[in-house]
Nucleic acid binder design. Sequence first.
DNA 1: CGGTGGGACGATAGCGTCCCACCGGTGCTCTATT
Length: 482
Amino acid sequence: MIDYEKKINQLLHDQFGFARFRPGQEETIRAVLDHRNTLAVLPTGAGKSLLYQLPGYLFAGTVIIISPLISLMQDQVDRLHRQGESAVVMLNGQLVGPERRRVLGQLGRFRFVFISPEMLANETVLAAFARVKISLLVVDEAHCISQWGPDFRPEYLLLKEIRHRLGDPRTLLLTATATPAVRQDILAKMGLAASDVAVIVQSVDRSNIFLAVKNTTGQADKQEELLALVNKYQGPGVIYFASRKLASQMAAWLTSKTTLNVAAYHAGVTAVERFRIQEQFMNNQLQVICATSAFGMGIDKNDIRYVIHFHLPSNLENYLQEIGRAGRDGKQSIAILLYSAGDELIQRQLTTITVPPVEILAQVKQGKLAPAVLGEQADLFSFYLQHNFAPAQIARAFNRRQQQLERELQQLLAYVHSDGCRREYILHYFGENLRARPSYCCDNDEADIDEVPIETSLSTHPTDTTADWASQLRRLLNITER
DNA sequence: CGGTGGGACGATAGCGTCCCACCGGTGCTCTATT
């Protein structure tokens, strides 16, 4: 360990250009270097990629990073290239033909391999990794292990077996938000004993984000409220919806009702268009994004001033992920949830899974019935049967998941209806206590939402014809003031 | 909740109206021959 000391600091300065570690980083890296399996829950912007990159330079062998999105892999690969690292590769469906065979044949030559869980579940790929010395297995956005599967991206539930097939390499799990229960669930689903894992947790509290809930009487009232908020705070801002259609409609409506540039972002928008919207938002050519939950992971804009929820998110973890995209620059920001009675029905509808009777599953497994009898979710259930999950086990997993989703929805509703401090509520949910109350905490703490000082980069009157150049100028001044 | 699409029904021939049931979100994969 001792000759690591010098090297760690040298690498930090020379390779990464940092003077010192940020909170949680050093502890995590030391646990990894100490050959421990590690779970790190660190807020976004804490520098999570350093946690596997630095050890990657100290260990012999290849670091495998499991990532849920191709765009996230691409970002990381680009970043490593810019740092001068060329022994990096991204292994996913975009890599095909001879190029793919070449990469698989020379896996050991790469220091960092980014891969999707689906690709890593592939037998050919697993066989290729059998010939490689794996120095570290990283699961990025590790909350997905708990959040996804059984009903979405089932390969996440194969990671335990995949890890075993890879020879149980030392493992690093990274996420920004995980309650104690989710942390436990992640470890259980990875087949790791809690006693065997170093857990590093930083507070999820974001003191510069004011928390508010606005009760409305229905859709029309909500829309009015939304328009007023958007006119007041201008941007940059994000508005979350639970349906694609409404996200698109509201984007068009806000465009017609304000002087702002607004775009819709959801999975129904083409990849090219989504990329363009993201770029324009980054460059402040777009001020407002009307999005579904598709928008978020990998968004690295530090001056988002507000996040408004037009609909409920599915739970408090997702809520925190979504509002956590505001105020990364540390400046005062605001999170407002617009609620009207009955909104929870949309979420409940979205998360309802029909589980076939165990008997039917068993008959499909035996080939006595065609998978089609399993209905719309036939592929999903077939997947588990093919991977030797017992029918009873599948049914139990889905039923448990269903109960969990309902429980989480109830806890979210308790937050919405709470008349106590919202920050305390969230922190308790994440197993923490409030250490210091910020001056602008939440709408239940006397603080008046209208007095929260939100500095917008485009604070002009919508009717002002000079709005364009005036806001341009203000933006320029903002930039040079920093 | 709010929006939508299909079917039934009525009053009378080409269509309007009403009611009810249903739905809403997230992404990866794609492999070839003897």
